[in-house]
Amino acid sequence: MFSTLEMDLRPGSGLWMFEIGTSLWNVLDILRSAQHFFPQVDVKYDPDTPTTPIILHLRPHLDLLFTGYQQRLHTIAVRKLRDPSPPLTLSYKKAVLSSNEEVLRRVGVSRIFGPTYPGDDLRYPGVSFSFEEDGRGESLKSPVPLPDDRLQEVKRVIISQKSADGEQRDALDEVAECRVMAGELCRAIVKIHEGVTLYFYPTGSEPIPVLLGLSTAQDLMCDLGPPIRTHYKEDDRMTIHRSGPESDADGDYFYNYQQHGIDFLISGSTHTVKKIILHTNVPGTPLFQRYKRCPWEIQGRPEDDEDESPPRKRFYERVEEIQHFIAPGEAPPSMILNRTDDEDGLRLPSSTTRLFGYDGIILEATDSAQVVAVMLF
């Protein structure tokens, strides 16, 4: 016997435990703790493009659509309302819309939500009700005529953010700033040899600069709060490429702010920031979902002192374009990194990446030219 899933519908806001605007990283973290509800989660994405939407399919009832750039929950689709594995009860303001005993029909929607505009679907601000199955084969079949279209059975319920003009938001649009984003990273402006400036929601909040060699572990604790994880540096494979003595790294430790997609390497002697690593959270790579997407932008030199919009390259641009931006000319030799060497039996589409080193910055990129991480030092 399956236990019944009881989900409350919140038009324009969310469904059950899912809130519009929540990051992909947070939702997958929620699902890890709810495996008794969803033992299998399918992640669907375009492996060649880091900015196409991502879909989480939670069998059999839910599809969660996330935006391509900010990786935030954009649309929730509830389907197979009558599938008993597990049974689903859908409610709105404590009134049951659909259950194993209650079939949701056109007339029921109209009674609860009121009149709406003509069309095949019933559309309201933040929610719509569809009478078509989502499979291509089903949509091509001729609908069975009913003596009274008021008895049409609802096959899908779609929840999305309300737009300012009342129109349904396009699936490729980013989610507008909302309450659930408060305190989360909005963007990270990278300045080579200097550090990174962090901007947080709500928009207009005071930015937080983190400077290489100057910002301390105590500064990070005061500005960002305690990290999710702290650990001492154990992987010394890159020290062979260091020009200085290897003993300089003794006692170094990491502050891992996975909720912001950032790692800070702290000097064990001065306790100042030595390195900053920004993660892009690209699906199909070994570090996917270990870190939230950090929306970093590498800033170039302004043309003059009055230039308020200096050139920038962003996380979703191809590695060749970013390389040319950092240092025009021939790209430096790359080193190959396989993060699955220590994971027996793990096979991923992009397990091997290449490291491109420049003065003050290293780019880690996949074979499809997606930059999965940036390291400042």
Rank of each mutant, 00 (worst) to 15 (best):
E308S: 14
K275D: 11
N256V: 13
E184K: 10
G68Y: 10
P39H: 01
G12H: 06
D250W: 01
N26W: 05
Q299P: 00
N281R: 02
I30K: 14
T22I: 11
R150H: 05
T22G: 11
A95G: 03
D344A: 08
L287H: 06
L211F: 15
K162G: 06
R136N: 08
T197G: 01
A217V: 07
D305G: 12
G166S: 06
E138S: 14
T285K: 01
R339F: 14
K292G: 12
D8N: 06
F113R: 13
R293G: 01
S33A: 13
S130M: 06
S23I: 02
L146E: 09
A369T: 04
E320K: 09
L140R: 10
V190S: 10
F254S: 01
A373G: 06
L287E: 08
S98L: 02
L9P: 02
H36K: 09
Q370T: 14
E317C: 03
S3I: 07
P227K: 02
L31A: 04
E297Y: 05
D8G: 07
R318C: 12
H193M: 12
W16G: 15
P286I: 09
G329V: 14
R187E: 12
L211C: 12
V144S: 11
E297S: 13
V175Y: 09
H36D: 15
D46C: 13
V374M: 01
T352F: 04
S350Q: 15
G284P: 11
E303M: 10
A249L: 15
Y45G: 00
H193C: 09
A77N: 04
K141Q: 09
G68V: 15
E102A: 10
E132P: 00
L56G: 09
P328F: 05
V144G: 04
L24W: 10
D236V: 14
R32A: 05
Y45I: 01
M1V: 15
G12E: 08
E132D: 13
E102N: 10
V103W: 02
